[in-house]
Simulated scan of single mutants.
Amino acid sequence: MQSKSKRSTEGRSEYLLLGSIIALGIAFSPYLFYLYEIFPTSPVWETRFFTYESKYYLNVLTAAWTYLGKITPLFLLLIWFFTCKHWWYHAILIPTGMYAFQLVVAFYEDVYMDASIFMDINGLIYLAPFFIIILSIVYLIRIKIFDRVYGLDLSELDETEVSVFSSVSDKDRKEIREFEDLEEDYQDASNVILEDYYRKL
């Protein structure tokens, strides 16, 4: 019994710790963005570990401002994606993919300064297949949820023939006729019973 309560307490503690880390990450996201102010304004940044040369922006501060301007919303969108409980959470991947693509393009242009490949010019062409796949997934999930909520069977749509000039479909007319036939049979049976009753009196 104590082991169950201990596991339950540990699970709650882990959940609380993870939630606290996420909340702190969101709260400190403006500070993440303003980290660019610690970088030098020169085109080369030398440290003991590496040397970074900004070839496109010609200023490490501007390059850091650009990178952190992409990393901060990307970080927040990833938190939103992994913590969202709505059925449409896959749609969050579209702006996430856009920011990730822009970050890669900005870094590639600044580090390599390859004028032969400009990925940012036709960025939408590179992202279109990704967007189409995500939108298809979201739409399929929406259809499944709509089907469960309203109890619709999509195979019934093939059986239903809707007339343009009539508000009642052929399938509904058929059901109405069957109901009327059943009602007539019931009335005939009740008339026979009444006649037998009166004869016996």
Rank of each mutant, 00 (worst) to 15 (best):
L18I: 14
V149N: 04
Y112P: 06
F130E: 10
F130W: 10
K144T: 09
D158P: 01
Y126N: 01
E10K: 10
I137E: 03
Y108H: 15
A189G: 00
R173Q: 07
W87R: 10
V105M: 02
G151W: 04
Y15E: 08
C84I: 00
P40H: 03
L157N: 13
G151K: 02
Y36F: 06
R142A: 14
L16Y: 10
I26L: 15
E10C: 00
I145M: 06
K6R: 10
K55L: 08
C84Q: 08
S8R: 08
L76V: 04
F28E: 10
R177P: 03
M1D: 12
R177C: 11
K85I: 13
E14A: 15
L127A: 03
V44Y: 01
I125A: 14
T62W: 06
D181K: 09
M119I: 02
I21E: 01
I79F: 09
V104H: 05
L32W: 01
Y186D: 07
D120T: 02
F107T: 14
K200L: 13
S190L: 14
I125C: 06
H90D: 12
K174V: 14
Y34L: 10
L16A: 11
W45I: 05
A27R: 06
W87V: 06
M1H: 11
D181W: 01
S29V: 04
L182C: 07
R199M: 14
Y34S: 11
K171T: 12
A27S: 10
I193S: 12
K70Q: 15
Y126K: 03
I125M: 11
L17N: 04
